[in-house]
Design a protein around this nucleic acid. Structure first.
Lengths: 113, 113
DNA sequence: TTTAATACATCAGATTCTTATGTATCTTTG
DNA sequence: CAAAGATACATAAGAATCTGATGTATTAAA
């Protein structure tokens, strides 16, 4: 099952920050592949969503970039800035808490009086 | 902590369906209050988001409505249609699975070789 | 040699949410 | 009793974010 992209809305930035927290330095295409791999193809980030998000995070000062050439092909590596590291932890914590809350909400079986 | 509404994006329809699955019959304002109560104020649905969502679910044939008057004040009760019941279970399952996947993703500490 | 994979990017259109506004009734409180 | 707050519906402009398409270019595989 591939998750309806509706669900991924709102979590993309957090996913990106977390990937960079765990891997120091990644390029866009690599992030899509890593997430696909880690989720057994269940989360497939589209480039049309990812690249604008990376640009936005960079504009917010959370990411820094360095260009590398592999042969003639360009790669743009992203890393967390100091602010990005802080923000990443915040975001991941918030999302984890949110998911706990949602799990509770979805498991409610009894009607309250 | 009130969750940044960014996180709620994409989960609103599922929350509404689930509330109706558990309570048979609810009106809009009641849903906002129930969710607020169940989440200790952490998820606060706005009316500007909720009412259009209810209308959309009704247009999709997932909800049915009945009007009731409390004094002179109107109340619009929503219930799951047969299709709505099926859809609700699908959505809740998908969201539960998605959250498991996300938890896994957020807990990854080690870099893969 | 042509298809697929790698790697970047942009953009029109769709969807969905926020915030504000509007209407109206009922309850509480100073 | 008047004002404020709670109850209860609804719409709409603007913002944010994603989809799906399109574009360019290099490298690897079939």
């Amino acid at each position: 099952m591939i998750y309806s992209t509706e669900l991924i809305k709102g979590t993309l930035k957090t996913i990106v920050l977390k990937m960079l927290e765990d891997n120091k330095k990644m390029y866009g295409y690599e992030i899509t592949q890593r997430v696909k791999e880690l989720t057994s193809d269940k989360i497939q980030l589209t480039e049309g969503a990812l690249y604008p998000t990376l640009h936005a995070l960079e504009a917010e000062g959370l990411l820094t970039t360095e260009i590398e050439y592999i042969g003639k092909r360009v790669r743009k590596y992203y890393s967390l800035s100091p602010n990005g590291k802080t923000k990443s932890k915040e975001r991941v914590n918030e999302l984890a808490e949110f998911m706990d809350t949602m799990k509770f909400l979805l498991d409610i079986k009894t009607k309250l009086a």
